[in-house]
Design a protein around this nucleic acid. Sequence first.
DNA 1: TATAAAAGTTAGACTAACCTAACAAATAAA
DNA 2: TTTATTTGTTAGGTTAGTCTAACTTTTATA
Lengths: 220, 220
Amino acid sequence: MLSYTEENYLKALLKLSFQNEDKPEAGTNEMAAYLGVKPATATDMLKKLKEKDLVTYQKYGKILLTDTGKKNAIAILRKHRLWETFLYEKLDFSWDEVHEVAEQLEHIQSAKLVDKLEEFLNFPEFDPHGDPIPKANGEIPILAKTLLSALEPGSSCKVAAVKDTSTLFLQYLQKLQITIGTKIKILEVIAFDGSLSIQIEDEEPRTVSMKFADSLFVQR
Amino acid sequence: MLSYTEENYLKALLKLSFQNEDKPEAGTNEMAAYLGVKPATATDMLKKLKEKDLVTYQKYGKILLTDTGKKNAIAILRKHRLWETFLYEKLDFSWDEVHEVAEQLEHIQSAKLVDKLEEFLNFPEFDPHGDPIPKANGEIPILAKTLLSALEPGSSCKVAAVKDTSTLFLQYLQKLQITIGTKIKILEVIAFDGSLSIQIEDEEPRTVSMKFADSLFVQR
DNA sequence: TATAAAAGTTAGACTAACCTAACAAATAAA
DNA sequence: TTTATTTGTTAGGTTAGTCTAACTTTTATA
Ligand SMILES: [Mn+2]
Ligand SMILES: [Mn+2]
Ligand SMILES: [Mn+2]
Ligand SMILES: [Mn+2]
């Protein structure tokens, strides 16, 4: 049985391994920063996780999830994203509100609960942010997606996921009436600052920043 | 902000105050036994709760919830029973399975979640065990109910709630196809051992023990 | 009312998860 | 290849929640 805190360390490690695409390893300071604790604290926990065979790690070395560790981490991520979907779909939470509550709900221990919840939600593949929901067997659906900033002028796409999940960005998207699945056409890219003129569904054209285009994943 | 553990102490105190109908006070050992900790542990926590003005208590004295303490305890009970209802109604949990998971879910912090959940469930008044669900304002619906054992032969009633919520009893009820609302007619009471012959809905008569009749609340 | 039993408290210790301050190792820069 | 910087560890301490063992107060019983 894993403690609340141990679960958070494992999930952090998994998230970092997605982030550092090339090498799925993480460092102590990186972990600590991600979790909002001091490096000394992370070191202690890492020793404990190693003892439990959830990570491979040695003094001054990089940290990597073991198979068991990864399995556990994926299970937590699965719960997180299922709960987010529940809150969004069934309880009318907006997509910038779901994360905080899911951070708590992901630690509820009950195999039956997760599976029944998934069934209740009709086996969703993606959460409200467009992130894939791991299956019960640990598989993670993959969707080919690109950053909006990678498309050429003239091309069209559909919003697939948000890269930046900050409240500010999510609320901005909401204001623009952009959600997962929304159609976007790139009209023009301004060479000067990388900002672009886009058409959202059939609305009037508008301009968004390069930062914006770097924060949104789309499907061609 | 209350800790997980503090919340459990407050809820325990509220439950004990329902149990000891005459006097809503509790003793240290009683609390400890209820929570599955040692008396010494309870003493420590009681001091802390007193410090936070959640209970009135003094050395060797009885323990009583303050208004704030009671308000908090009711909020937790409300969450517990709403979650039980959710699990039972929406996720197909059986009524002996809901409690354990609700014990965890009741500690999720999110005012919006509770209220949205209540709305989603259509403002239920009673949980799967027939226990009243406190309203957002703290009011607790009351239903006039009697023990099955208090009825005279010949009378009819409807099952209102279970007094004993043990798995064994709940599963026995399930086997007898008795649930909240089920109609029961008392045919005969055996003077020898207090057992009684009853008719469940329109089924064949059957005999149940006095212990059984003392564990079931009904409505005349 | 004296004594035995029950109820409750205190002291001291442990573990998990955190911290700060001082140190050590690894890496990057000069 | 030294030196400086970054990265990570260790030592020692704190708090919440738990325990055991010894003690004290209250209550019940003879
Ligand atoms: Mn999230
Ligand atoms: Mn998400
Ligand atoms: Mn319950
Ligand atoms: Mn209940």
